[in-house]
Amino acid sequence: MKTQQSQGQVIPFIHHSDYFFKRGVHAYQKQELKRAVKYVRRAVELNPEQGVFQCQLAAIYSDMGEYTASNELLSHVLEHVDETLYECYFFLANNYAYQGLFDKAGETAAQYLVLAPEGDFAEDTKYLLEMLEMDSEEEGARSEDPEADDELIITYERALRMIEENRLFEAENTLEDLIAAYPYYPAAQSRLVRVLYLKGHVEEALVYAKEVWHEHYYVPAGCQLALLYKEAGRDQESFETAGMLKQVLPLDRDHLYRTAATLTLLEEGEAAFLFFRKYRQRSAPEQAEFFFYCGAAAYQAGHLQEAQKRWSTARAKGHTGADVLLDKMEHHLLFSSDVMRELWSAPLL
């Protein structure tokens, strides 16, 4: 314990709650989540009537995937500490969305807008509601006719098999027919972008990806667009599209992974690493490709030990690219250009 001398007396220097809170926020900004929890929890213990401290702790729990603990803390703040901390409703809505409780997320988000229509999170809440409404509309449209819904899925999966078997002309025709029958289904449109790209119609694929992205804001199409811009040498447009992707945290787990991998390919390592962290909170990944991309994002973000750990797992699962990078890393011969070369040897589109 620090002390200071005053006229022969030893006076203890006592840290106040604000000190621990600031330390916690600093650790949180550096993504040192366990340290952040330690400091902010101490701040809450010293000043349990400060609702903002508890909201911050709940936000950290959420980033760690501890949604139940976060929800309990936010509910406690509203019920027992400060019912006017309306941002708690926004945080709760996000947690519910991540937990798949979409109806509850929508209700809580709407409650936030009623209580704080001009609040700091009003725009973010409106965007969340739009995403939830879009998912609900698509689900409703697909469920109106169960037989049509089955036909959509069967035809879509048949098109995917055609792509895997390199039967691209058949896949193109099948997807075009599917899109004509189900124009609200952007997944088919995104697959058509891939087919056009594989056929060598890169400019056509780019134009179509842009159309799908701006019409539906379908995350995989945005990822495709950013990568196509990059491949075409249109770096500024690729950078701008990546910037839009970084502002979206997809509710869909596969879309979250795709965003993280795309940002890695675009050398947006810091953002990609955070997206991969979110992905790991929602699932237990086992595929070698995940560990390869996650390792690359960690390397780009300067987390070299994390990169080595992820690539080691990928190598153990048979990923040759990870093996190449690890060998160079172990001999102190690894450069960023080596990482990008392995990433783009089979780009994610």
Rank of each mutant, 00 (worst) to 15 (best):
K317P: 02
S6G: 07
L349E: 12
E165K: 07
G233F: 06
L198D: 11
Q7F: 14
A141M: 11
N173W: 12
R41K: 02
H80L: 07
G302S: 03
F276A: 11
Y257S: 02
G106Q: 13
F275E: 05
Y96F: 15
G24P: 00
Q31D: 14
L249Q: 09
L245I: 00
K278E: 14
R161K: 15
E123H: 05
F53R: 00
V10G: 14
A69P: 01
H201T: 07
Y39A: 09
A346D: 12
Y89A: 03
L334T: 08
L46F: 05
A93V: 00
A209P: 11
V212F: 06
A307H: 02
Y19F: 12
S6W: 09
A296G: 08
A261G: 02
V25N: 03
G243T: 01
T68W: 04
G222P: 10
Q9P: 00
L343F: 14
D103R: 11
E79Y: 01
D120C: 03
E203V: 08
R277C: 02
S190Q: 03
D149E: 11
C88P: 01
L101A: 12
A69V: 01
D177P: 00
L349D: 08
A141R: 07
Y89P: 04
R161D: 15
Q56T: 05
G243I: 03
V114A: 14
Q9D: 04
Q308L: 12
G8W: 04
D18W: 03
V195T: 11
G200F: 11
L265P: 03
V52P: 00
A93P: 01
Q4L: 14
F276E: 11
A59E: 05
R41Y: 01
A187T: 04
G100E: 07
F13N: 09
E172H: 11
E306C: 10
F13H: 13
K34P: 01
L168S: 11
K278P: 00
N166L: 10
Q287G: 00
R258F: 15
G269N: 11
G140H: 09
G269D: 12
E87Y: 08
H332T: 04
Y197A: 15
S6D: 15
H332C: 06
P48L: 01
A260R: 02
A181N: 09
L348E: 10
